Simulated scan of single mutants.
Amino acid sequence: MRSLYISQQGCYVSLEQETLIIKQGKTVLGQVQIPHLEQILVFGKSQITTQVIRACLWRNIPIAYLSRMGYCYGRILPIERGYRQLSRYQQQITLVEQLLVARQIVRAKLKNSRVILQRQQRRQSSNIIIAAIQSLEYLIEKVDRATTVEQLMGLEGAGASQYFSAFGECINSAEFVFAGRSRRPPGNPVNAMLSFGYQVLWNHLLAMIEIQGLDPYYACLHQGTERHAALASDLIEEFRAPIVDTLVLWLINRHIIDAQNDFVHHNGGYYLNDSGRSKYIKAFVQRMEEEIQIDPEEKQPKWDLLTQQIKAYKQFIYQPIQLYQPYQIR
């Protein structure tokens, strides 16, 4: 199963029997068999025929519409993608159980951030990185003493601030300068890649959450609203550093992304342009298809990690006594 990314502008997606045809003008950019699809992500101004939409609804394939900058406007889902059964169980999770899982999520995010900095510290020592690692260790110790979700959100925010204060030390290209995290709008090309990567990963998690029948609006750490699928925001935390941040560093340090030619400055912020998005998505898919060793006898692609964690969360919903264990790197 795969995701189809329509990242170039002015594309037209039509259906011929069981095959999607992606064109830009008269040029055929690609063909994809519908049975092989898991979801479609459309960035910016491209069109999909009614026949394609109907075929996707029939096969339970969600279609997400995003801005060129990665903001998700909405999704087309089949009627049967409801959350009634599991939603009842999710609503029965107690405040204590929510707090315990929220602690697990924040602790895992802080630990994964620390590991990324520790790896860089072993390659090239930096007093800034040492200070950030020490701060993260202090915050990790405080997680178990947090008695409210609000306190945990504060620790998570403080950890992100410390982590990103040292993130620039991991960048080896003089073309890219990073002094701190800025989101709306992204203040520089590094922030543009981070924001775009988080949005792409968030949408993947949301699709997989829906496939498993979970209600994405009930979560433990983040608060859901009519426009915020909080469970995707919960589950992305453990994957930010090991998937998106490491990919951004790889793209920069290997000189795959060009600071001059792969970005556009728009409304006071920096964003990936068509070529930049194409490079990022290609590298993202390749990275997620890489196999990792999960035990001495078994490997699995990184895609499976996402599904594995969502299934683990689903098991927690059915049996809250078995607390959800987020993914942690070493």
Rank of each mutant, 00 (worst) to 15 (best):
residue 123 R to F: 11
residue 100 L to C: 00
residue 165 S to R: 14
residue 45 K to A: 15
residue 18 E to Y: 10
residue 127 N to M: 11
residue 214 L to S: 02
residue 29 L to I: 01
residue 20 L to S: 06
residue 95 L to N: 01
residue 266 H to Y: 15
residue 48 I to N: 04
residue 299 K to D: 05
residue 51 Q to Y: 11
residue 124 Q to L: 11
residue 75 R to T: 04
residue 32 V to K: 04
residue 302 K to F: 07
residue 301 P to W: 08
residue 197 G to R: 00
residue 259 A to G: 08
residue 254 R to S: 15
residue 72 C to A: 09
residue 10 G to Y: 05
residue 213 G to F: 03
residue 101 V to H: 00
residue 206 L to W: 06
residue 269 G to P: 12
residue 207 A to Q: 07
residue 126 S to C: 15
residue 53 I to E: 07
residue 275 S to R: 13
residue 222 H to R: 11
residue 203 N to L: 08
residue 105 I to K: 00
residue 7 S to H: 05
residue 53 I to F: 04
residue 206 L to I: 05
residue 208 M to S: 04
residue 141 E to H: 13
residue 279 K to T: 08
residue 42 V to L: 14
residue 321 I to P: 00
residue 17 Q to N: 12
residue 321 I to E: 14
residue 60 N to R: 06
residue 75 R to V: 07
residue 49 T to D: 10
residue 33 Q to P: 06
residue 54 R to I: 12
residue 324 Y to I: 09
residue 308 Q to K: 14
residue 117 L to D: 01
residue 228 H to A: 06
residue 322 Q to C: 12
residue 140 I to Q: 04
residue 99 L to K: 00
residue 152 L to A: 11
residue 287 R to S: 15
residue 118 Q to I: 03
residue 277 R to K: 13
residue 79 I to P: 00
residue 12 Y to A: 06
residue 231 L to H: 11
residue 19 T to H: 09
residue 251 L to G: 15
residue 80 E to D: 04
residue 119 R to E: 10
residue 280 Y to C: 12
residue 9 Q to R: 08
residue 314 K to Y: 02
residue 86 L to G: 05
residue 229 A to I: 06
residue 122 R to A: 15
residue 46 S to F: 11
residue 143 V to R: 03
residue 58 W to K: 09
residue 314 K to E: 10
residue 88 R to D: 06
residue 32 V to Q: 09
residue 314 K to F: 02
residue 63 I to H: 00
residue 242 P to F: 05
residue 102 A to I: 01
residue 75 R to F: 03
residue 102 A to D: 00
residue 299 K to N: 04
residue 110 L to Q: 11
residue 148 T to L: 06
residue 267 N to P: 02
residue 63 I to T: 01
residue 306 L to E: 06
residue 93 I to D: 00
residue 292 I to T: 11
residue 90 Q to C: 11
residue 287 R to K: 15
residue 64 A to T: 07
residue 136 L to H: 14
residue 114 R to Q: 14
residue 142 K to H: 14
residue 106 V to T: 07
residue 249 L to D: 08
residue 175 E to S: 15
residue 15 L to N: 03
residue 311 K to T: 08
residue 180 G to N: 12
residue 120 Q to G: 13
residue 25 G to D: 08
residue 188 N to T: 03
residue 125 S to Y: 13
residue 58 W to A: 13
residue 285 V to Q: 15
residue 158 A to E: 14
residue 265 H to T: 08
residue 146 A to M: 07
residue 210 E to C: 08
residue 82 G to I: 05
residue 56 C to M: 05
residue 245 D to L: 05
residue 84 R to W: 04
residue 107 R to L: 15
residue 100 L to Y: 00
residue 320 P to N: 08
residue 297 E to A: 09
residue 218 Y to D: 00
residue 186 P to A: 14
residue 62 P to V: 05
residue 225 T to W: 02
residue 260 Q to Y: 13
residue 279 K to L: 14
residue 86 L to I: 09
residue 329 I to E: 07
residue 233 S to A: 15
residue 276 G to I: 12
residue 272 L to W: 10
residue 115 V to W: 03
residue 3 S to V: 06
residue 95 L to K: 01
residue 241 A to H: 03
residue 100 L to M: 02
residue 63 I to Y: 01
residue 265 H to A: 13
residue 271 Y to E: 09
residue 38 E to G: 07
residue 3 S to W: 05
residue 119 R to G: 03
residue 90 Q to S: 06
residue 135 S to V: 10
residue 59 R to C: 07
residue 158 A to R: 13
residue 110 L to H: 09
residue 241 A to L: 02
residue 155 L to I: 14
residue 238 E to L: 10
residue 160 A to N: 12
residue 56 C to G: 08
